[in-house]
Amino acid sequence: MSTGATTATPAAAEKARKGTSDRSRAENRLGLKLVAPAVILMLLVTAYPMLRALYLSLFKYRLSAPDDREFVGLNNYVTVLTDSLWWGDVFNTVVIMVITVAFELVIGFAFAMVMHRVVFARGIIRTSILIPYGIITVVSAFAWQFAFSLNNGFVNGWLPFIGEDFNWFGDKWPAMIAIMVSEIWKTTPFMSLLLLAGLAQVSEDTIEAAKVDGATWWQRLWKVILPNMKAAIMVAVLFRALDAFRIFDNIFVMTRGAQDTESVSFLTYRQIIEQFELGMGSALSVLLFLSVLLIAYLLVKLFKVDLASARGER
């Protein structure tokens, strides 16, 4: 969302500079007045907590010792950035983000094609694909935890190459797999919904034309359909990547960070909520915010998509 706004702003500014007529200037002024209340409200509910976190991150401050608050400058950041726990958690988070988004993109695209092309029982098929997304993450995490559980789960029984007494949550990578399966199952429908919107925008005429020119199904997919929905894919990947980077619920429910499956969000939660370390936790949340910004920036650069032009503004 925010990246959409930032890429649109230069375009708007450019227009404003070019526009010479009084009328367009008046329109701009009216526009500013109209958005002002929303912007002020947004600043109150988002900018204030962010600035407050930035301020708190410069202190050593425990909720259980409120009188011992002490200014420590950038010390919290130095501690975090030189700590192996932070980098280990960043690694976990990036692994989860890359793998889940990759799976979701492929499966989500297949689902989107099904939803787009299906001719019979359209409503039922679309609805059933979307059902997992309608389930609360915590609930789906519990469901998958029970499925993988050693005592009452069914996964061990269903997988022929896995022993009956295999403990999925007893080791790092099996636990990570369980977490990622739950994440993928839950959010693939969201991905397919975004991709379906992109798919609907690809004009049937170009696909027909490619067909007439003798392009195979594979060529049509790679040369016509995918390039035409690049913006939609980017939005889908961006949304999901940012969400996946902030993964919390699945880990909280399934492992509570045990077996070294902790994500950056979970680390932040533990510092602020469990250990009442408001200063250190704020530093972590500032770093989490910066990481998200960085990922968004890199993705936008990687896809080389101008969202303003994708929306037809230029």
């Binding site: 050693l150 005592n151 007494d165 403990n167 949550f169 007893g170 045990a258 077996q259």
Partner: peptide
């Protein structure tokens, strides 16, 4: 117990 790394009072009881 096979679930030692995730066991608690309740699972120990079971």
């Amino acid at each position: 117990d096979p679930d030692l790394p995730v066991s608690n009072e309740g699972t120990a009881e079971a």
